[in-house]
Design a binder for these strands. Structure first.
Lengths: 186, 186, 186, 186
DNA sequence: AATGAATGAGACTTCATTCAT
DNA sequence: GATGAATGAAGTCTCATTCAT
């Protein structure tokens, strides 16, 4: 499976850098140091490759995000989870950019997208729990998640794009902004 | 310039629907009811076309967003501006989807991106003004704008994607979330 | 007829510089400062234009080459004619290059080629006359003309290509070479 | 390399017959019995193909022209070399026509032209040697080579164009003309 | 007579995919 | 399983020519 991993990593790099229409399979095979045919042993088509990369990243993300224990205070859980998400995407620029670029692409199949949504379940449950405790705004959880996620991704994009060094203050501020957005204001 | 407008509108539609690699110039010319060569009279390359469409939308956006008078209370200005932004993108699904799909695409040139950033100047000034009045969090304005914008776009995407009818409550809630995110909490 | 002349001169320039496949009619019209349609008022097609330029040059050549009086000694006539030919092609680089580049092109019609051959009649007669006087080799006149013409054109090409300044010695040498080639050696 | 050879031969044929602008790559691939993409595995662009064909012919020419031993009398060497050149171009009409048609075309790169000039070195040395022996005119060798080459090519062109059968007399006459042109006349 | 925007056939070139080795 | 030369459909773009003004 060594080759498959190589292909995924190199394909990812080229797809991000040049865009899908400017990342030919031949270039990917060259970058990965394998024959063109080898790619087709692991991926049925180029679209399949693009989809599998997406799934690969999403799986890695789920594996590496901290899902705090549920007995902790909501705010505490929120901070741990949210910070680990920021940290993950800042630490893995390629993964971030890939998700950011292909999230809305028509190439992604419904199945792939479904798989991607799994990563949302924790924050979904957390917000609901928070509402029950009277901490979180009593409005549609979906709307809030959309907003938070969009805001987060946009922040990380800014970090990468401007080549900014992530530090404690930036994180603290983001946690504050995000929490204030959804918490009930007294 | 009748033809140019036609081409822009039709190209936009196809580029969104199929993605850039699946929207051949021949299809665009057919959809626009002009000869293929005509497109190339107005746009040097396909990439130029994609860039010019982006600029076109951004210009239209700036023209159509309400920029409230600066003597009004900050919160009031914020609400007016932010609501008109939501309304604009909900009312113009094509424009929204186009921006959403191409915002990060490598085809966009630096110049195009620069042009796009002009639309940010109002909210930038507004937040600074709010900070001076002790209403807005004393943290980097850029970070807050990124967050707000990302959240907003993500919300509108959800509206369109799930085919939800925008109503007063949804707007009110978004304004609340957005404002809470950046205001100073007592 | 001012415009027609302009078109011919400018078309010639571009056709030589870029080759026929890289000299679009649009570029020619621009260079000539006339509308595209205007070209088509004077020339039925691009091929017609190329042919007419050829004929134009050939006519100019015949008009400007010295045809010495027939009572002069053969050698004298030969020198006068040959030198004036060299001089003409050195003085008119564009005309030379055009003939040189299109002489064998399949675009030239039989009629155009016929017209071009008229310029050969003088040297043809001269060589025959020389043969009768026992001065010129008693071999096919056509072969000798081919050789002389090819040699001459090749010499002029060298002059232009290497950017050499034509001087008396170069001319004298060429006359010598050319004459020695066809004269009877004792 | 079987395919590359096929492509070269077939492309040559079509380029001569129709001219470069009327010999589409699709027609060449069809004639050569290969896929269009195959051509582009060996030749970067159509221009590259045209250049490589030129180089191919020039190499073949050098390989097949007799370069007589240097201890032979100059005149003898001259005759052997010159006759073998005539014979080569008469025996290989396609090669001749190709060189004749593209020798001055703007598509040929400087590098290609350089390569082509290698074939001149033998005659260059021979004439210099002849000058040292007091046999050849003491004028610029380059000029004489230009003249001889131009004359030769022009003669062969005539042979092909008029469909004349080459025979001993025609050759003898050409050798005479050529030699007389450059030798010192007593 | 002059113009030049519009046309669309057709050119060059790319690249996802196959398959014989 | 690995390879990469070969394929050819399909894409982008050009440009000779027309025609309404």
């Amino acid at each position: 499976m060594e080759k498959k991993k190589q292909i995924i990593e190199c394909a990812m790099k080229l797809l991000i850098k040049n865009g899908p229409q400017a990342a030919p399979m031949s270039a990917i095979s060259k970058e990965a140091g394998v024959g063109m045919g080898t790619i087709y042993n692991y991926f049925v088509t180029k679209e399949d490759l693009i989809n599998q990369i997406y799934v690969f990243i999403k799986s890695d993300q789920v594996k590496n995000i901290q899902h705090p224990l549920s007995h902790l205070p909501i705010k505490h859980q929120f901070d741990i989870y949210y910070e680990s998400l920021i940290q993950y995407f800042v630490d893995n620029p390629l993964y971030f950019q890939y998700l950011d670029q292909f999230h809305n692409a028509p190439v992604l199949t419904e199945k792939t997208r479904k798989h991607g949504n799994k990563s949302m379940s924790f924050i979904n449950d957390l917000l609901i729990c928070g509402q029950e405790q009277g901490l979180i705004k009593p409005i549609g959880v979906k709307e809030m998640i959309q907003f938070l996620n969009g805001g987060l991704m946009s922040f990380v994009r800014w970090i990468h794009y401007k080549n900014i060094q992530l530090n404690r203050m930036l994180i603290t501020n983001q946690l504050q902004i995000a929490w204030d957005a959804v918490k009930i204001n007294v």
